[in-house]
Write a protein that binds this DNA or RNA. Structure first.
Length: 127
RNA sequence: CCAGGGGGCCGGGCAGCCGCUCCUUCGACAGGCUCAGGAUGAGCGGGUUGUUGGAGAGGAAAGUCCGGGCUCCACGAAACAAGGGUGGCGGGUAACGCCCGCCCGGCGCAAGUCGAGGGAAAGUGCCACAGAGAGCAUACCGCCGAUGGCUCCUUCGGGAGAACAGGCAAGGGUGAAAGGGUGCGGUAAGAGCGCACCGGGGCUUCGGCAACGCGGUCCGCAUGGCAAACCCCACCCGGAGCAAGGCCGAAUAGGGGCGGCGCGCCAGCUUGCUGGCAGAUACGUUUCGUAUCGACCGCCCGGGUUGGCUGCUUGAGUCAUGGAGCGAUCCAUGGCCUAGAUGAAUGGCUGCCGCCGCAGAUACGGUCCGCUCGUCGGAUACCGUCUGUGGAGACAGAACCCGGCUUACAGGCCCCCUGGCAUC
């Protein structure tokens, strides 16, 4: 891994990223949010809706490769970057995904995100 | 060759570029700790980064259905009860609901395969629908009507008829199941009523560790099914799980205990310190002196949040050889070390080979035909071979570790067996 990168490990950070910039692309959704000077961090979310463990792991591995290449060059400094897998992301061409991620990062750096999902119903969690 | 049965194994390979995790060799960098100290130094331990060498998902890693190891908790021991599980017999095993062998029964020509396979005269309950009748069985259609009565005839001996009483359970019909089966005799018609064979039950010789089997003998033999309904019998089982459990340091808030038990007044200014007086405790034989203390401090213990380390991979391990056993499996000797991740590594991209289909080329090999039987001549694109092109690539990702079971699975390989056909 590139020395300037680190991994997001806390659930609360993932939830916080939801409130940041949001750029949607056919294979994935990019979330970006400032993190108070903790450097460039990344996280990957692939839900069970996408497929079984094999499919999910493969998607995570490909996304990780993409991020390792793209973030040191064009990532947003001191931001959390979260990639959310979407249906079709596994079959999508790798080079195409790379271009789309670059475009998404550029767009996020300009501060332009897609409209968010709007206020979600809060589900009260036990524990 | 065709059809079928059983068992075992594999489940892509090679290369290039860029990477990940864990060990390992040798450095570099900046900290830390300990020892010694004049500087220097010696040792330890991780972190970052480079470098040398190495390892890195499955047969089901899955479902989490059984059985164990390990850990903590509970508990005098044991028995009983409750609840759950298992259920032919013997063996294997750490153990099992697993495996092996055998027995019995069903299916199949056979190889084989399937079976929760203890108890139904201990008791309770259920047997829907259909059907006349379904558990102290029953009589709808039917059969008979010997016997008694009725009608008719009579040579007065009796005969014929209908089917009232009554007898029967063979045949039909219903059903998953109708109170042994087939046949002969028997009878008015029938019926284990009698007999033969088959089936069943009791007792028993012999064989077998046993389940059970072979035979003998007695009994004409009403007493069904469901126990995956309750139940009875025999045997087994404490609970929770690696987020188990153990350890470590720091910051912040802050609980308990012990000790200081005195918590005050005055002045100065740097506004929380200094000085003085009073005070408490200890010591010194005294009104005195010295030391310490002074509303928060010191020490110890405990809990919460977060992080790190450990548990963590050497184990009922695996391979080879030899031996015991029909086998599951066990024993001996020797070799080997074979993933340890934690928002979770074991990969990303590309090329070639291999697999399948289609098109084309080739008479080199197979194949077919002919004779002069040869290192022969001819035919043919069916197979091989070569070229091009298109496609398929399953089920599925370790999470403390083992033994099983179950379920999913593209394609492929090997061995054994059975039946049929052909040839010798």
């Amino acid at each position: 891994m590139h020395p300037s990168l680190s991994v997001i490990r806390k659930r609360s950070d993932f939830l916080a990223a939801n409130r940041g910039l949001r750029v949607a692309r056919p294979g994935f959704v990019l979330l970006a949010r400032p993190n108070n000077g903790q450097g460039k961090r990344y996280g990957i979310t692939v839900t069970k809706k996408i497929g079984n463990a094999v499919v999910r792991n493969r998607m995570k591995r490909r996304f990780r490769e993409l991020l390792w290449v793209a973030l040191p060059e064009s990532g947003l400094p001191d931001h959390d970057h979260v990639l959310i897998g979407r249906e079709g992301g596994v079959e999508r061409d790798f080079a195409q995904l790379r271009e789309e991620l670059g475009a998404a990062l550029t767009r996020a750096a300009e501060g332009k995100g897609d409209p968010g999902r709007g206020p979600r119903k809060r589900r009260s969690r036990r524990s």
